[in-house]
Nucleic acid binder design. Structure first.
Lengths: 209, 209, 209, 209
DNA sequence: TATGAATGAGGTTTCATTCAT
DNA sequence: TATGAATGAAACCTCATTCAT
C-alpha cells in the first residue's frame, strides 16, 4: 500500500470519526441546537478541522443521512437476488428497516426529515446527487421485488412503483409516528410491535386474493 | 354585540392574521430560516406585536400545527357517529386526510415533524397540553371506528390501538414520503394517486379474510 | 372648595397612588427590571395613564426619591428650632434617618444611588431643581446645627459644611453598606445596631475634647 | 517560557484589555447605557470576542469591581502586619482608600453600588464567591486591626466587627456621598478634604478617652 | 382623562465560519 | 494538516412610549 493510499485511508477514517461524533451530538440535540464546536469537541478535534472534511454544517449533517441511506440501500439490494420467495424478501425488507431503526433511530428520523424544504435547499449538487443515488438504489430494489410479486400474481395488480412507494412510505411513516408517540408519552415498548403490525398489514394489503 | 365581544373578536381575527402570515413564511422558508421580522412584515404588523399574541417564535410555529391538528380532529370526529358502514368511515378518514393535505401540505408536514426532539422541548405546558389533547382526540376517534370494525368481524383481530396506530402512522408516513419525493424529483402529480393507493392497501390489509 | 381645586386634589391623589405602586415595584425589582406595565398594573391603571402624570420612567423613579428626600428634609428641619441641646438634635437626626430607613430602606438606597452618572443625566431641569432644593434643605438644616455646636464649643473647630458632609455621608454610607452586607450574607439583625454604633462614633468624633 | 505560558499570558493580557475598555465605557455611560458593541469597539475587538472572555455583560461589569476589590483587599492586608502602631495602620487604611478613589472613583462607586438587589442576582456563583472572598478579605484585615486597637485600650470597647463595619461603611458612604455632591454641584475640589475630615472624625470617635 | 394595542428601535447574544500560525 | 481565537452578521425579544378611540 503506497503512501497516497495510506493517507487516503487515514483521511477516510478521520471523516468517519467526525461523522460518528456528529451522530451523537445531532441525535442528542437536533440539527439546530447542535453546535460545530460541540461536535468538534466530541470528535476530539478543533472546530476548524471539521471544515477540512466537510464544507459546512449542513453537509456534515447530510452525510449522516447519506451514510445510513447507503447502508439501507446496500442491505436492501442484498435481498433482491437472494434465492427466497417474494414474501420472504418483503419480510427481509422489514427486518432491515427494524435493524436500522435499532441502530440509530434518531438519524433514521433525520433522514426522513431531510425533506423539509429548509434542509433540502442549501445542499451542494454533489451531495444532492448522492442522496438521489442511494435513495433510488434502495427504492429500485424494492420496486424490483414488488414487480416480481405482481408478475407472479402474488401482489395486487397496481403500478409497481406505486406499490413500492406505499411500502417505503409506510415504513417511514410508522417509524416517525411511533417515535413521535414515544416522545409525547414517554412510552417505549410499543415501538417494535407497532412496526411489525404495520408491516404485516401492509404486506397483507398488497396481496392479491 | 357588546364592546367587549367586539374586541375579543377583533383580537381573535388579528391572531388569525398573524397565523396566516406565519403559515406563508414558515411554509416558504422553514422554521429556522423564517424570521419574526419577515412574518411581522407579511402580517403588516411590527415585530413587537407578534409577541403580544405569541410568547415566542416556537409557540407561533406550533400554533400552526395545533390549528390544523384541531381541524383534523374535528373532521375525524364528525365521521364517528355518522350512519355509515365502518368501511365507509375509514374511507372518510382517508378523504379528510387528503383534504387537509390539499389545504396546506406544508403545515401538515410540519405537524408530523413536530416530534423532532428539538422542537418538542421549549413548548409551554399549555401548548403541549393542547397538542396532546387534539392529537388524542383525533386518535381516539380512529380507535373507536377500528374497534367497531373489529367487533363487527370486518377487521383482523388485532389490538384496536395498534391498528389505529398503523392507520394513522401510514397516513402520516405517506404524506411525508410523498412530499419528499415531490421535492427531490420536482414531480407533483403522483401525490394524490399514491395517497389513495396507500390507503387502499392499508384498509385492505386490515380486513379479515 | 371649587371644582378646580377638587380636580387638583384628585389629580394629586392619583399621582400618589402611582408613586406608591412604583415604590413597591421598584423596591422589589430595581429600576431596570421594573417595567412600566407592571407599575401600571400595580396602580390598577393602564400604562398610558402613567404618562399623563409623569414624563417618563426616569422621572417617575426620581419622584420616589424626591418624595423621601422631601420627607427627610421636613423632619430634619423640624429638629433645628426645637428647644433642645445640640447633642440631642444630632441624636434626633439619627432617629429620623433610622425611621426613614425603617419606612422604606429600598427607596432610601435608591436615593443614595441616584448619583450614578447614568441616572443623574436624563432628568428634566425641573426635577433636578427639586432634587437640589430638598437636598440642600436637609443639608442646610444639618449644617445649621453643626455650626451651632461648633460655636458653642461642643464640636471640633472644622468647617461646618465639612462636618455636616461627614455626618450625612456617613449616615448614607452606613445605610448602603449595611444593606449590602444584608444582601450578601442574608443577615438582617445587625442593621440597626450598626447604624446606632456608627452614629455614636461619629458624634463622639465630632466632639471637642 | 513555553508556548502554553505565552498563550496564557496573551490571553490574560487580552482580558485586561477588555476590562480596561469596559472601565472607560461603563464609567462614562453607566451600566445600562453602555453597550457591548461600544466596549468591543473601544477594545478594538468584535462583540463576539467579549463573550469568549466574559459570560455576559453583567459579569464583565462585575469583573471591574472584583478587580478593584481585589486590589483594595491586597493593599489593606499589607497594612496588618506592618510594624507600626494601630493608629498608623488605621491611617494607612485611609490612604489606601484615598489612593483607590484616585485611581478610579467611578469603579469604586460601582463597587459600592453593586449591592443593588438588581445587580447582585444574575451573577454566576463563581463570581459571587470571588466577590465574597475579596470582600471578606479586606473586611477581615480591618477587623484584625480594630481588635488590636481595642485590646490595646486605644479604641472604645465595642464589638470589633461592629467598629470595623462602621469604619468601612463610613469610608464607602463618604466616597459615594462626596461623589454625588460632585455631580450635583459640578465641584471637584472638596472631595479629598472631605474624605480626610471624615476619616479624622471617625478615627477620633473610635478612640477611648 | 383614560385606555391598551401597537410600535420599532436597539441591545444582547450566538455560532458557523475563517485564517494566521 | 490542524488549531482555536476571532469574527461579525443576524436574530430574537423587550419595553418605554405613543396615539387613536
Amino acid at each position: 500500500m503506497g503512501i497516497y493510499e495510506r493517507k487516503q485511508r487515514e483521511k477516510e477514517r478521520r471523516r468517519e470519526d467526525i461523522i460518528d461524533a456528529a451522530r451523537t451530538v445531532f441525535s442528542a440535540k437536533g440539527f439546530n441546537s447542535a453546535t460545530m464546536e460541540e461536535i468538534a469537541s466530541a470528535a476530539e478535534l478543533s472546530p476548524g478541522t471539521l471544515y477540512l472534511y466537510f464544507k459546512n454544517k449542513e453537509e456534515l449533517h447530510t452525510s449522516l443521512s447519506i451514510n445510513i441511506l447507503k447502508h439501507l440501500g446496500v442491505e436492501i439490494q442484498k435481498v433482491v437476488h437472494q434465492d427466497i420467495s417474494v414474501e420472504e424478501k418483503i419480510e427481509r425488507f422489514r427486518d432491515v428497516f427494524i435493524e436500522v431503526y435499532d441502530y440509530d433511530s434518531n438519524i433514521l428520523i433525520n433522514l426522513f426529515h431531510l425533506q423539509s424544504g429548509e434542509t433540502l435547499h442549501n445542499l451542494s449538487d454533489e451531495v444532492l446527487q448522492q442522496l438521489k443515488k442511494y435513495s433510488s438504489q434502495a427504492h429500485g430494489a424494492i420496486i424490483a421485488v414488488v414487480k416480481e410479486g405482481i408478475e407472479a400474481g402474488i401482489f395486487i395488480d397496481e403500478h409497481p412503483v406505486a406499490l413500492a412507494d406505499v411500502l417505503w412510505a409506510s415504513y417511514a411513516g410508522v417509524v416517525l409516528w411511533v417515535d413521535s408517540k414515544r416522545l409525547l408519552n414517554d412510552q417505549k415498548d410499543f415501538v417494535k410491535p407497532t412496526l411489525k403490525t404495520a408491516f404485516k398489514i401492509i404486506i397483507q394489503g398488497m396481496k392479491a386474493k
